[in-house]
Each structure stands twice: as structure tokens, then as C-alpha cells.
Amino acid sequence: MTEVTPPRDRLEKPTLVYPFEKVPEVGQVIEVAPGVVWMRMPLPITLNHINVWGIEDDNGWAIVDTGMQTEANLSAWRQIFANATEQRPLTRVFVTHMHPDHVGIAGWLTRKFKCRLWMTRLEYLNCRVLAADSGRQAPEDALAFYRRAGWSGAAIENYQARFGNFGKYIHALPESYRRIKDCERIQIGQHTWRVIVGTGHSPEHACLYCEDRKLLISGDQVLPRISSNVSVHPTEPDANPMQEWLASLAKLKQEVPDDVLVLPSHNECFRGLHARLDYLALAQVRTLERLRQSLKQPKRVVDVFTTLFGRSIDETDAGLLNLATGESVACLNYLLHQGAVTRILNEAGVALYQARSAEGLP
């Protein structure tokens, strides 16, 4: 997964506390609390790692997230199993959400240990749908979405050639799963973990909060050094995920106290949850206002990249172009839903966005 992080208008970043001096080497573990271990899996992209977590369970270990389906990742898991001082099985596999770096090895692990996949319904079903796109041609609705955004013919051709790669990094999911729900309390070993569902980054992202241990496994909902990509996708072009993500940040602040140790999917474990949530929300609101102010003249989606990300996006970098486009549409759709901008299609069928007035956002 590559993150597209907007500039922050010199907003002062909060001081977070990182209690661990080192990160785990591939194939090794670090204990972050009694019976809770931190592992790190390699990713073949710019964001070169994902953190996964082990929680001591009855007669074995539950894990949260898995890494992508790659040979390097499979090797890392085999090394962890070989290095274990006690050969205890996995009892279940929790997955926070459907992105390949989180769910990629879940099918392999559940089959190897004959255990269940625990996941929210929308994440499981969406993952199955996207993985089934492998080998298909890019649908016309998707091509129309990117043409409306202002993509060139070369960028469209590149997208068509790459379409269906999602399933490449995901081992076939099990045919059944154990659904987890918002507010559900799940006993793992001697402790209870509560599911807190957020949206915006993905359809039904599950965080896990253990009140008595003061631990929050945050997935991608809150990260200490980067902001999660929040995108609109061709399957739901009028969605407003940015509003959902902002609401999810507020929900986390309300439901989880500030004194937790946050165990995120990327970067390092940290303390200072509320300050980080406040920063992410305020920075995004400032970014949205900066975008609105830049729309005094009509602009295409591809014209707002510099405003949002502080630089242009090379259309030959297909993965980054896709993420930047999705997040730009998410920001523009937010403004559309607020009534702050208008959208029309020009004679070529490309969407043009323009601010309604000089007034601030509601």
C-alpha cells in the first residue's frame, strides 16, 4: 500500500511518545505487553512493511492481520514459526480490513492451522468481489470514471493493462468466516477486546480495543507518521468517504481513552492517540478549505494534485496516480456534498469543479 499524504499547511505536529527503541526484524517478535507480540512483515512497495500482532489465546495464538501474499512474506511467517520457543498453533486469524497487505496471507494461515477467519462482513465480501476481478477486462464504468477525472489516453491504457491485479497478492480466502461487528466484545485468552468499526479508508474497518490492558490495535484508521489514503472508487463514484473518515476519527476519540498504547499497521507503536486524532482531523479540514479556495476557476480532478499533495503526479506511476485520483475525488465529493462546489461535464465528458462562493466550509 502506498500512502498519499497531503501537505499540512505548517500545522504543528503533536509530540507523540514511541516507547520502543527498536522495531522487530523480519521473522522476529517483540513483546509489547504480556501475551501480546509485535511482528513486522515486508511489503514490495514504497511503504515497505506492515505490522501484525499476536495475542495469546487459549491453547495458542490469535493474530491480527497477515501481510501480502508474497514469497518474502511466506518466508517471514515460516521463520517466526521456526523461531518460536513453544510450538503452539494459531487459534484464529483476525483481519482489520480487506487491503492485500492486511488480508493477503489469511487464507494460507487459516488452512495451515485449520482455524477461522474473523472479519467484518463488508470487508470479507468486498475482498471476495475484488479478488474475482482477476483475469477480467477493465469495465467501462471504471474507464469512464478515470476519463471524467481527466486521465490521458496513455494512463487509461496503463490502467487497462494492470486491471485485476488485486487478487494477485491475496491467497484464496476461506469459503466461510466468523463475522465480527461494531461494539462486539471478544474474549481472547484472559482478556476482552472490543471491536470499534470505522469507515472511510475501507468499508467496515475493525479496530480492536482492550480496556484493561489499555491497548488499541488501530489498523489503518490512525497511524502516527502518515495519513491513511481515503479514496473514491469507480464502483461508487458519488461516495463521500472523507466525511466517513472524519466521523470515524471523532468516534475513536470518543470511545477510546487517551492513555492507550496504539498498535498501528504502519510505523511504530505510540502514545498520544487524542493529539494525533485531533491533528489528522484539523489537517484534513484545512486541506479541504485550501482545495475550495483553489477552485475559483474550473478544474479537473488531475488539476488539483499539486494543491492537495504539494506536487504533481507522474501518470507513468500507475499505482500512485490511482491513489491520488481516488483521494482527490474523495476531497471534491466532500465539498460537493457540503454544497461548497459545483461539478459540470465539459464537451469531452471530463468533470470540472468550481467553488460556489468565497465563504468558508460549513
Rank of each mutant, 00 (worst) to 15 (best):
T2F: 14
K13Q: 08
K22P: 05
V26S: 06
Q28M: 14
E31A: 13
G35M: 03
R40E: 04
M41I: 00
P42V: 01
L43T: 04
I45M: 13
G60Q: 03
I63R: 06
Q69K: 15
N73V: 00
N73R: 07
N73D: 06
N83S: 10
Q87A: 11
R88T: 10
F94V: 02
F94K: 08
G104R: 00
A106I: 11
F113C: 09
K114A: 06
L117A: 10
W118L: 13
M119Y: 08
Y124I: 09
L125Q: 05
A131R: 00
A131L: 04
R136K: 15
Q137W: 08
A155T: 11
I156A: 06
E157R: 15
N158D: 13
Y159K: 12
G164W: 06
Y169W: 09
S176Y: 09
I180T: 06
E184L: 11
E184S: 11
S202Q: 00
P203S: 05
A206Q: 01
C207M: 08
I217N: 04
V222M: 10
R225M: 10
R225G: 05
S228M: 00
N229M: 04
N229I: 07
V230T: 09
H233Q: 11
D238H: 15
M242L: 14
S248F: 07
K251H: 07
V256E: 06
P257R: 14
L277G: 03
L277Y: 06
L277H: 03
Y279H: 04
L280A: 08
Q284R: 12
V285K: 15
R286A: 01
R286D: 08
T287P: 01
Q293H: 15
T307A: 03
D314G: 15
G319H: 14
L321G: 04
S328V: 00
V329W: 07
T342R: 14
I344E: 01
N346W: 11
